[in-house]
């Protein structure tokens, strides 16, 4: 084995030739990011873990069909997004998110100009935002997560979700409005 830093494309090509070690390296490099996306779509740690594992099985199976038109990361984002959304769709109808919890209201006050928030409070606030995302239509969650949390461009997200950019922009726009509406409901208690 020669010591070298392989690109994701090198690793995918090697994995397509049956090199399991190369595929393991992809798993090492991308499991963290894939978990992050799955968790933000599902808002459930155990389900996000399962989605990541489903995603790697799907990735291995779909390797022969990967032609390299998209970047490997785009392909992996697509695989994990589909795995997470598949789990959302297989869930039983969800209990509506309780947006009237009075205890949540102070967490959404605008603290930009106030005292610096402690880490624990920030985490709680993030949890609340994740809950609000989890209450969105499944088709709105992935675009919102990829745009706002992963910082991807509209063009990249359109490739991941296999939709055209104009449709994607409209979907992100609707998702933002829906999210802010839910957060405002929470803020008002």
């Amino acid at each position: 084995m020669t010591e070298r830093v392989d690109t994701d494309r090198d690793l995918v090509s090697a994995a397509q030739r049956g090199d399991g070690v190369a595929f393991d390296e992809l798993v090492r490099r991308h499991t963290g990011a894939m978990y992050r996306v799955a968790f933000r779509i599902l808002n459930d740690r155990a389900e996000a873990e399962d989605a990541v594992q489903d995603a790697w099985v799907s990735a291995w199976r779909s390797l022969p069909r990967f032609r390299g038109d998209a970047a490997p990361t785009t392909w992996l984002y697509r695989v994990v997004t589909n795995a997470a959304l598949g789990r959302v769709r297989r869930r039983r109808p969800a209990v509506p998110v309780n947006t009237s919890d009075e205890a949540l209201s102070p967490l959404l006050s605008d603290r930009d100009s106030g005292d610096p928030a402690g880490h624990a409070v920030r985490c709680e606030e993030a949890e609340l935002v994740h809950r609000a995302i989890a209450a969105l239509e499944p088709s709105q969650r992935a675009p919102l997560v990829l745009r706002e949390f992963e910082g991807m461009s509209y063009e990249q997200i359109a490739e991941v979700l296999e939709v055209n950019t104009a449709a994607l922009r409209a979907r992100v726009h609707r998702a933002r409005l829906a999210l802010l509406e839910r957060l405002e409901e929470m803020r008002r208690g």
Partner: peptide, 13 residues
């Protein structure tokens, strides 16, 4: 703004 700020802060966690 409060909801948007909450979203921005959540992206940093």
């Amino acid at each position: 703004a409060p909801g948007w700020s909450a979203l921005r802060r959540a992206t940093e966690v």
